[in-house]
Simulated assay, not measured.
Amino acid sequence: MSDFDAVMLSYDEPIADRLHARLQRVLGTRVKRLHGVQGMRRAYRLAAEVTDSEQFLLADGDFVIATEFDLGSVAPLAEGVAMRVWRARNPLNGLIYGYGGLKLIRRSALRQLGDAVDVLAALPGRAEFVADVAGTTRINQSPYHAWKAGFRECAMLARGSEYGMDDGEATDRIKAWTDGAEGEYAEYATAGAREGIAFAAEAAHFPHLFDQLNDPAWLFSRFTAGHAEQAVAG
């Protein structure tokens, strides 16, 4: 039996119930769940309050854990490390990196979150990124969710990674998001990625606008303003 708790954070993902059940089955333990919490920073802070262990696994509501993931082999975080991130596959553009990946995180670090657009980049302590792939980030559960994934990620990449990613790597990832993709609702992810870059250029002169990337109501309004008819037709 692992000493780590596990928590899923979901908001409005259509298949989150199934992914939560899968997470419990693969990990072989109960996975606590926070659903529909308004405000990303608030949701992460609440996650720290529902766990009973100082270090715990944290999964998003669109994370499909790989069946071979072995909870028993997970080592505790080293001193000074606030979070470990396993990589995830993007089913639309083939990218494999930390975006949407499984995390092992310190409860005490979440209680001290600073200010950052990418909320977990504000943890006090070092982030550790490992090469192992823990699953798939199922961003394409609907046209809106695919669009939102591309929009938020490329807006943040275009703004400049808060994890210290070099410009060349960020450029390569943006290219993969914007070049087109294959799979269900792929066109929405591509459109969102291109629109996210445009948004980053607009917001560069008004940095506070980047906070809108963590506002679900604003994101949905932005999507429906440009894509509602296509989404319904599709």
Rank of each mutant, 00 (worst) to 15 (best):
D3L: 06
F4E: 11
F4Y: 10
M8R: 09
M8D: 08
L9G: 01
S10E: 01
Y11S: 06
D12R: 10
D12I: 02
H20D: 01
R22W: 14
G28Q: 12
G28V: 06
R30C: 06
V31K: 06
R33V: 06
L34D: 01
H35C: 15
H35Y: 01
G36H: 12
Q38R: 07
G39R: 03
R42L: 15
R42H: 15
E49S: 14
T51K: 07
D52S: 11
S53Q: 08
S53E: 09
S53L: 05
E54W: 07
Q55V: 11
F56D: 04
F63I: 02
V64K: 04
E68V: 07
F69V: 05
V74N: 08
V74C: 11
A75S: 14
P76L: 15
L77V: 13
E79F: 14
G80Q: 12
G80W: 08
V81N: 10
A82E: 04
M83I: 15
M83Y: 13
W86H: 00
A88F: 01
R89K: 06
R89F: 04
P91E: 02
N93Q: 05
L95G: 05
L95H: 03
I96G: 04
I96P: 03
Y97Q: 11
G100C: 11
I105N: 06
R106K: 07
R107G: 06
R107T: 02
S108L: 01
A109M: 04
Q112P: 04
G114T: 07
V117I: 13
D118C: 13
D118M: 13
D118Q: 15
V119M: 07
V119W: 01
A121L: 09
A122W: 11
R126I: 12
A127C: 14
E128N: 14
E128T: 08
E128H: 15
A131Y: 03
V133W: 09
G135E: 06
T136P: 05
R138M: 15
P143V: 07
Y144H: 06
Y144I: 02
A149K: 07
F151P: 00
E153M: 13
C154A: 08
L157Q: 04
S161N: 13
Y163V: 12
D167H: 12
D167N: 10
E169D: 10
T171M: 06
D172F: 11
R173W: 04
K175T: 14
K175L: 11
A176Y: 01
D179K: 06
A181R: 05
A181L: 12
E182Y: 09
E182V: 00
E182F: 10
E182K: 08
G183Q: 03
E184I: 10
A189Y: 01
T190K: 13
G192P: 09
G192L: 05
G192R: 02
A193D: 04
R194L: 13
E195A: 15
A198S: 09
F199A: 06
A200P: 09
A200G: 08
E202H: 00
E202R: 13
H205R: 10
H205V: 10
F206D: 09
P207A: 08
P207C: 07
L209S: 01
L209M: 10
F210D: 03
D215N: 15
D215R: 09
P216T: 04
P216M: 02
F220T: 01
F223H: 03
A228T: 02
A228C: 08
E229Q: 15
G234H: 11
